[in-house]
Write a protein that binds this DNA or RNA. Structure first.
Length: 279
DNA sequence: CCTTAATCCTGGAAGC
DNA sequence: TGCTTCCAGGATTAAG
């Protein structure tokens, strides 16, 4: 479920609870949830005996960095949750917990993911993490510049929404915030990217930044199961202007919002506020 | 290049 | 109540 604002919310709530703490033990309940580490070395690769120095984020991806140089890449997929269980406490949900890090203060970090589209990748260094994963991603969407967006779109004829969902174009936008940003920019999601006028690309970059900033400020959106590292929900879902509102009136003009499909993803837009470009 | 469909999974909601 | 079907915040792969 998580897009950039939700992952950033997890990062911000997780960092104060994990950074500076030493991992005493790692419990791997589902070995196939961990990739790129020789089976015997997995516990050490996942941080056993090491102290967390920082937690990074690029787009929807997180990385936990350790004082021995290792980096563990976390991807939440559709249903992933990473949260803390305080010393002496017990998790609200213990099913589908695939990994548990026990820290030197008695607390635990749990990675829970019912659908298992997420996962954990262990790397020997941050360089290796970049080479194998993060270098393939576009610039972070939270600060996307007009120039970088224009570069990412190139002369592509794909629907603009398909481009926004493409993590190699820019990293962090998913189905919710793609619809929201296109509404704010006044663009039909089906518009071929190459048809955008320079001013429209500028408006779109600005819309992406402001939609994501607002969602981060609201601590993300909880549709069903998103929770931050302290098991609190986000609140941005109550402010959606188009996402999941097909058939309902536009909050700006009152027209009925249209549902469609782009890149096999449910899409909603306002035919009046987001007109198809004149041929 | 582009698009579509299928795939990996579980579980909640809607329909009958 | 119970059973079936569809749908979901993501991302990759193969096929056309």
């Amino acid at each position: 479920m998580p897009e950039l604002p939700e992952v950033e919310t997890v990062r911000r709530t997780l960092a104060p609870l994990w950074v500076g703490r030493m991992v005493q033990t790692v419990e791997i309940k589902r070995p196939d949830f961990v990739r790129l580490a020789p089976p015997g070395s997995k516990l050490k690769a996942l941080g056993k005996g090491s102290t967390v120095t920082e937690i990074l984020r690029l787009g929807k991806q997180m990385a936990v960095c350790f004082d021995d140089g290792r980096a563990v890449h976390l991807h939440l997929g559709m249903s992933g949750q990473v949260f803390v269980v305080p010393a002496g406490g017990s998790p609200e949900r213990a099913d589908h917990v695939h990994i548990r890090w026990k820290l030197d203060n008695g607390s635990s970090i749990l990675f829970r993911d019912p659908r298992r589209f997420g996962g954990v990748w262990a790397f020997a260094s941050i360089d290796e993490l970049h080479r194998q994963r993060w270098n393939a991603l576009g610039p972070d969407a939270l600060a996307i510049s007009t120039a970088d967006l224009r570069l990412g779109l190139g002369r592509s004829t794909r629907a603009i929404k398909a481009c926004l969902l493409d993590q190699t174009v820019l990293a962090g936008v998913g189905n919710i915030y793609a619809d929201e940003a296109l509404f704010l920019a006044g663009l039909d999601p089906h518009t071929p990217a190459a048809d955008l006028a320079p001013a429209q690309t500028r408006q779109l970059a600005s819309a992406i930044r402001s939609v994501l900033r607002a969602a981060v400020a609201a601590r993300g959106s909880t549709l069903r199961d998103f929770m931050d590292a302290e098991m609190r929900s986000g609140s941005q879902q109550s402010r959606f202007r188009v996402y999941s509102r097909a058939g309902k009136p536009c909050r700006r003009c009152g027209r009925v919002l249209l549902g469609s499909t782009v890149s096999q993803r449910t899409t909603t837009h306002c035919p009046a506020c987001q007109p198809r470009k004149r041929p």
